[in-house]
Design a protein around this nucleic acid. Structure first.
Lengths: 98, 98
DNA sequence: TGGATATTTAGATAGTTATCTAACTATCTA
DNA sequence: TAGATAGTTAGATAACTATCTAAATATCCA
């Protein structure tokens, strides 16, 4: 069911924008919030969903909480998509990872 | 914004199951519905969302409507994910496809 | 310890979505 | 053309989600 969490998290445009920001560099919750017009609590909510999906990692440093990207979950999604996309053939290992 | 439609469509477990079915072979709406416990209209609704996202294609053959997978949209999503996942470097073409 | 800053949690609300039953449309066939 | 079969559309409803403001928690520093 991890795939469902990942896809739901990525299905929101604000959350995709957050991910694009974090691709460039790690950022605090406040820095991320400053890039958007919606409220800090809303951003916090989005961060929580991304974190729950395993797409980002948080680490407190003093008063700040730094967020960074965790690409392994996206790599898993890529594998699922490639499997669905693939036209038959390939080793047994490659088949039905889901 | 096509990406949003794709991800929303894939975020539902029933719709992912439909995609897995269609990976194996093309099927009519009825055949697809028979694989699930939810009502035909609900399946029809899911098919409509998948179609709107460009993930599947429909073609009427007499009384039946056959559905088949369209992988190009998923390939686009794979590219987006690989771009977000990638650790810098690469040609200008490869950067920011979104 | 007390005030300031950073962030999250709580509670409310408006909009979206998945599901159902009933009714409709399209096609085939006798 | 009438009946049967395949599928969709309409309308209702319950559950979920994104957003907001207000309040709570955590950390730093003087």
């Amino acid at each position: 069911m991890a795939l469902g969490l990942t896809l739901k998290a990525l299905a929101d445009p604000t959350r995709r924008d957050i991910i694009k920001l974090l691709k460039e560099k790690d950022m605090t919750a406040g820095e991320i919030a400053d890039c958007f017009t919606i409220s800090k609590p809303s951003i916090s909510h989005h961060l929580s969903i991304l974190k729950q999906a395993g797409l980002i990692i948080d680490e407190r440093q003093g008063q700040n909480i730094y967020y960074s990207l965790n690409t392994s979950v996206m790599e898993e999604l890529i594998r699922w998509l490639m499997n669905v996309t693939r036209k038959e053939g390939g080793s047994a290992d490659e088949r039905n990872p889901d």
